[in-house]
Nucleic acid binder design. Structure first.
Length: 474
DNA sequence: TAGCTCGTTGGACAA
DNA sequence: TTTGTCCAACGAGCT
């Protein structure tokens, strides 16, 4: 048994269960839960506006959960190291525990913090809690990081299933005196505009809500996941991404819950469960790549793409951001993003392909917009997704693979319900016109105010193929 | 080492 | 209407 209080430094592990740093802190006579807002340390990748909204509510949920355990949540802002040292002085803590992050700047910061704490004679221990497999543990036979998903995932799973999650600590020992805390509002995480009002209708941040959502998904949609996940009009996906990003639920907990469900419901769900867990595999792969190729949020993984002739066109970028491209499925996705802070994954690929290939705008401008507007904005996932779409990343789509927004709409939103939900001005259009309203009869078209296509897809496709051949020969 | 196979998510076109 | 083939290039990863 330890003799002094400890700090548990929460970052993106905003949960009580399966939290090894919290468990370690609870072995001390007192555990002081701490969150430090230090966006400067994340450089260009400090949480975007939507992500800050989530963070605010997630911190609030965790503060309530801690209070229910007889504890308190100490919130501060400022440089991480200085704030931790200050808190250690105030509480008499000689140990600090945290769970590991893997982004380049977070690693840099954590190395700096660890050195500073050691210098001050304070013990610091970090734990593996946000990934199923630490990025440095997985490598190909010749010792290099993987760049193709399938062999990566096979290697991850070769030794067996990931470990079991740990339970919530039985109790969180409180100190005799609490250090002071900022009020959550003092972090000013919520947007000043009323933009985020719609988020409340769709989302409830926090550990409890995350687990509720997981059980609903496992009971309702897991069986139909392989087909349902491609239909944006339906709730076929788990929508756990923002909860996962802030660690309200851990991948180990999801893994175990899925396996339990399969055991109870029989082998019929086995294939669906594999398809769903594979998505956790992509999250692992994204972190693996970002860890080993830390330049990729800004630079393409494939060096020849740095010479790609991207266009510069702020006006067209705006048209894409606002969902006014004249391609209904693209516009529906961009408006769903703006209104709910989330976009269906199938549609993410389509709007990304459209920006990069039809509009020839740089993938980085798409990544920046997603970073600011997605509640689940995650540097590793965002980087992998955009580089994949642009064809300049690991395991990328071949250059000639260009999504056709009309065909994708007819295939994955055949009724047009998804488009009508987010582009309500297209409600008068029947299914046969909904994805190409410009060829509908004039008497229908003149009743609605919806733009003509910004580009002709067939021409844009040829232009993209030509641009891609430009870097091929160089 | 050299050669082989394969690559989450597509589309156009021909039969 | 459905199904198969090609697009056409390349590097990762394995044997």
């Amino acid at each position: 048994m330890e003799s002094k209080p400890a700090l548990i430094w929460f970052r993106r592990d905003l949960r009580l269960a399966d939290n090894p740093a919290l468990i370690a802190a609870c072995r001390h006579p007192a555990a002081v839960p701490v969150f430090i807002w230090s966006p400067k340390e994340d450089g260009n990748w400090a949480p975007g506006a939507a992500s800050r909204w989530w963070l605010h509510h997630s911190l609030s949920a965790l503060a309530n959960a801690l209070e229910a355990e007889g504890s308190q949540f100490i919130i501060r802002k400022g440089p991480s190291l200085g704030t931790l040292l200050q808190l250690a002085r105030e509480t008499g803590a000689r140990s600090i525990y945290s769970n590991r992050l893997h982004e380049p700047l977070a690693l840099q910061r954590d190395t700096h913090v660890a050195a500073g704490l050691q210098h001050a004679g304070i013990r610091h221990e970090s734990f593996d809690a946000s990934l199923l497999f630490e990025p440095w543990e997985i490598h190909s036979r010749d010792g290099n990081p993987f760049q193709v998903f399938t062999p990566f995932w096979r290697t991850c799973l070769a030794p067996g299933e990931p470990g079991d999650p740990a339970p919530k600590p039985r109790s969180i020992p409180a100190p005799a005196r609490w250090p002071c805390s900022l009020a959550l509002d003092e972090l000013e995480l919520l947007p000043r505009l009323r933009w985020a009002d719609g988020f409340h209708k769709v989302w409830r941040p926090g550990e409890k809500a995350a687990h509720g959502k997981l059980s609903d998904f496992l009971r309702g949609n897991l069986a139909g996941y392989p087909e349902g996940r491609d239909l944006p009009a339906e709730a076929g996906t788990s929508r756990l991404s923002p909860h996962l990003h802030y660690g309200e639920i851990s991948p180990r907990q999801i893994w175990q819950a899925v396996q339990d469900r399969v055991r109870r419901s029989g082998p019929a769900n086995q294939a669906a469960a594999g398809a769903f867990l594979r998505q956790l595999g992509w999250r692992e792969f994204a972190h693996h790549l970002l860890y080993h190729f830390p330049f990729t949020p800004e630079q393409p993984l494939r060096a020849n793409f740095s010479k790609f002739p991207w266009r510069k066109d702020a006006k067209t970028l705006k048209v894409w951001q606002k969902g006014l491209t004249g391609y209904p499925l693209v516009d529906a996705g961009m408006r769903e993003l703006w209104e709910t802070g989330w976009m269906h994954n199938r549609v993410r690929m389509i709007v990304a392909s459209f920006l990069v290939k039809d509009l020839l705008l740089p993938w980085q401008s798409g990544a920046d917009w997603f970073w600011d507007t997605l509640l689940d904005a995650d540097l590793a996932n965002n980087t992998l997704g955009w580089q994949w779409a642009a064809g300049c990343g690991a395991d990328a789509a071949p250059y000639f693979r260009v999504f056709n927004p009309v065909l994708q709409g007819e295939k994955f939103d055949p009724s047009g319900d998804y488009v009508r939900r987010w582009v309500p001005e297209l409600k008068p259009f029947a299914a046969k016109w909904i994805h190409k309203p410009w060829i509908a009869p004039a008497e229908i078209r003149k009743t609605v105010n919806y733009p003509l296509p910004t580009v002709n897809h067939a021409e844009a496709r040829d232009r993209a193929l030509e641009a891609f051949s430009f870097i091929r020969t160089r």
